[in-house]
Computed example of a mutant assay.
Amino acid sequence: MGAAVMRTFRLYDFDGNRYNLTSKNHLFFYAVDGLGFEKKSQFQRIEDRFALLDDYIDQGKIVGTIKFWQPNAELQYFNFAQFCQNQPIMMDYNNNYGTYSRRGIITSIKRSDGKGTPLEIEIEFSAATPWFKTISKYNEGTITGGKVYDYTYDYTYSESVINTVSIDSDSYQSSPVRLVIFGEAVNPSWRHYINNVLVSSGKINGTVLDNHRLIIDTTTIPYSIKQFDMLGNVVSDMYQQSDFSTKRFVRFGHGTNTVTFSADNVNILNVGVEAEIEYATI
């Protein structure tokens, strides 16, 4: 017999604090619903056939029950309720085959008295994103040391072709990414290929300063093109300096996604890609 699959849930508040929803002898999240998806579709009838006009995944809602064990159930519930106020919230789901995340807010908490029995509440998490898996890769070129990376996830430094990062996506969903270019870089540009076919490109008419980084971001709404200093502070919004004759913003598709970078002042750049590979269901 194979090993049992232990599914775990974790929440992260706006400040990155973690709350484990499957903590032995403290609390347990169960009877979870909403891990699948529902599509909204519009059709036009033509005789006895139907033409698809529009098709999109509806906003997800995850509901379930949390049981707080005595004797400290009331205190645990209070701490949890306070945690949920520091929104937005990110939910992590791990099923032993990987960790998948979803951003959103807690839109409902329903509780019973719980006096003398385990205190139970029902929660509703309204998702702002689909489920996604984070994959990040960097190509340092010949630059080493002195950089500060204030990121959450681990990185892979394995690219052998200069100024190039490749990431495979096994999802058929369009997936958002962050492109990262470290300075100094004058008039940096980028080109995105899916399975060796050019699908988009972009360019900034300006300079990314030394020890700064330019981030072209489609993981947030609205999309953005901003320059940050080493501490993560926004130095300048460079959207208006982007080349409007190009698509500029990148989203990954199914297959091998390759992004190549260049700049006017150097032949070798320090670059990276942080992809959030999205899934309709997990």
Rank of each mutant, 00 (worst) to 15 (best):
M1R: 05
A31W: 01
E140H: 14
F78E: 15
G232L: 05
I89D: 04
N25W: 04
P130K: 14
N94R: 02
T164F: 00
N267V: 05
E74A: 08
I121A: 00
V197I: 11
V199W: 02
T144E: 08
K61G: 01
F182S: 03
N196Q: 10
L35D: 10
E140P: 14
I181G: 00
N20D: 15
G16D: 10
E276S: 15
V148T: 14
S136N: 10
G202M: 07
D113T: 04
Q76A: 09
L198H: 04
L198Q: 11
D217L: 06
S171N: 03
I277Y: 03
N94T: 09
N139M: 04
I106T: 07
E276Y: 09
Q70K: 11
E120V: 01
I282A: 06
Y279V: 06
L11S: 03
T207V: 15
Y149S: 15
K133W: 04
R213M: 08
P176W: 00
F132P: 03
F14Y: 04
M91N: 04
Y193L: 07
T134S: 15
T258D: 05
Y279T: 06
W131H: 07
V186E: 05
D54W: 09
T107A: 14
I167F: 01
I225M: 10
V271M: 03
N270T: 14
T246K: 13
G146P: 01
V5S: 05
A31G: 10
S242P: 07
G36E: 14
D170H: 05
H254E: 13
F43A: 05
G104S: 13
E122P: 01
S23L: 11
A275V: 12
H192D: 09
I123Y: 01
F228A: 13
E276M: 14
A127H: 02
G206S: 13
S224K: 15
I46H: 15
K133R: 12
T8Q: 06
T256H: 06
E120W: 00
D15V: 11
E140L: 12
L214M: 12
F14S: 15
I121Y: 01
G232P: 07
R111D: 06
I277Q: 11
F80M: 14
E274T: 08
Q76S: 10
G253R: 02
M1A: 12
D210M: 11
K203L: 09
N96S: 13
I135K: 08
Y56S: 09
V161W: 02
D168V: 07
T142Q: 12
N233G: 15
Y223K: 14
Y172P: 00
N211I: 09
Y100T: 02
F83H: 12
N17D: 14
S23V: 08
F125S: 01
A51F: 07
G34F: 09
N257W: 08
